[in-house]
């Protein structure tokens, strides 16, 4: 796991292929669905190949042909055992996933089993004009229709803000990120970032910069700060403001301090580029010019030692050099996040 790399993260690699390709893959599947629907109309007899498990299942259950769905509200539930006749792998997988726990009456298997999400099985076999609901959109189900299946149960808690969220607005399906038959899913700390990077490639590039949060090491993962399902905060952050979010891990910067540095109290991202920077401490820009964006005439504020520009790097002035090297202005004004020293008005102590 130490060597864990993108190609080793099985699910992530698959998602790389699948998530962004989801629309296209779905389109391909949907073509198949339409083709199959036409066949259904023709009611071609089914030829059963005894060596073909699907055909065997079809024969056993008088399966006809898949049809485009026209509504799944009615029909008889047959139970997972029947589903397992053809989809044993799926059913067995479900049994070791949270969705497959029949003892938990909130889960699909605590209710109707596979059919709780995929629709009544009876329609899958005998009735014309119906089909199962495919969560990959195989039968042409729209993203919203598929998501509505999940939201039937998952509309509370962390999914409270899904409708109208950034990801919902971008037509992401739940299965774009989640493997609903699988136990660990995108929650797994070691693989989650690869799932997110499938779309957020610029953020992936940020993590390789000289200064970055430990995202490459999976010690900070996307969901530590963001709720992919939307939130009441900016940028789908877990907390209600940017600073509250940062204080979750950096409580020492919370204060409130006696002497505040207003931008720091307002919005950490005014000075920091949180996903990665080539400047130290995730700063937006090199100093002292970063500070000079807001502090142009520092001579009169601090006293006679201050000078107004550090324009010439080669001036060989050791007095000016102290404003340029290492932490530049913050060599002395080290308390840029605020000071609680009664003599710390200049954020030096």
């Amino acid at each position: 796991m130490v060597l864990l790399s993108a190609s080793q993260i099985q699910n992530a690699a698959e998602t790389t292929t699948s998530t962004e390709a989801a629309t296209a893959v779905e389109a391909s599947a949907e073509v198949t669905a339409k083709d199959e629907a036409k066949q259904a109309e023709e009611k071609a007899p089914v030829e059963v190949d005894p060596a073909d498990p699907v055909a065997a299942g079809e024969a056993k259950h008088a399966f006809k042909e898949p049809n485009i769905c026209e509504g799944m509200a009615e029909g008889e539930f047959l139970g997972p055992d029947v589903c397992a006749d053809c989809h044993q792998d799926k059913v067995e997988t479900m049994k070791v996933s949270p969705h497959g726990q029949s003892a938990d009456k909130r889960t699909p298997f605590g209710k109707e089993g596979c059919e709780q999400c995929h629709g009544p099985g009876e329609m899958h076999f005998d009735t014309e004009g119906n089909c199962i609901v495919s969560m990959t959109g195989r039968f042409g189900e729209s993203v919203q229709q598929r998501n509505d299946v999940c939201l039937g149960c998952h509309k509370s808690g962390d999914r409270m803000h899904w409708v109208g969220s950034l990801h919902e607005s971008e037509d992401l399906a739940c299965v774009s990120c989640h493997s609903i038959h699988k136990r660990n899913d995108v929650i797994h700390r070691n693989s989650q970032s690869e799932v997110c990077f499938t779309c957020h490639k610029d953020i992936r590039a940020d993590t390789y910069r000289a200064s970055s949060h430990p995202i490459r090491e999976h010690k900070v993962i996307c969901s530590d700060c963001h709720n992919a399902h939307g939130s009441a905060g900016p940028k789908s952050l877990n907390q209600f403001t940017i600073n509250e979010n940062c204080y979750s891990c950096h409580a020492e910067k919370r204060g409130p301090f006696l002497w505040e540095h207003y931008p720091a109290s307002e919005d950490c991202t005014l000075c920091h580029r949180v996903h990665g920077s080539n400047h130290a401490a995730l700063l937006n820009k090199q100093g002292p010019q970063l500070c000079q964006q807001c502090h142009a005439d520092i001579r009169t504020q601090g006293g006679g030692r201050h000078i107004r520009n550090f324009l010439d790097f080669d001036d060989n002035d050791p007095g000016r050099a102290r404003f340029k090297v290492v932490s530049n202005c913050a060599n002395c004004h080290i308390k840029v996040h605020g000071s609680n020293h009664p003599s710390g008005a200049a954020l030096q102590r």
Binding site: I68, C69, C117, Q145, V149
Partner: peptide, 16 residues
């Protein structure tokens, strides 16, 4: 069963 919205067919055509 969960109430699956109708008009899946139409949506399918619209989406694909």
């Amino acid at each position: 069963a969960i109430d699956i919205p109708p008009d899946v067919d139409g949506a399918a055509q619209a989406q694909t």
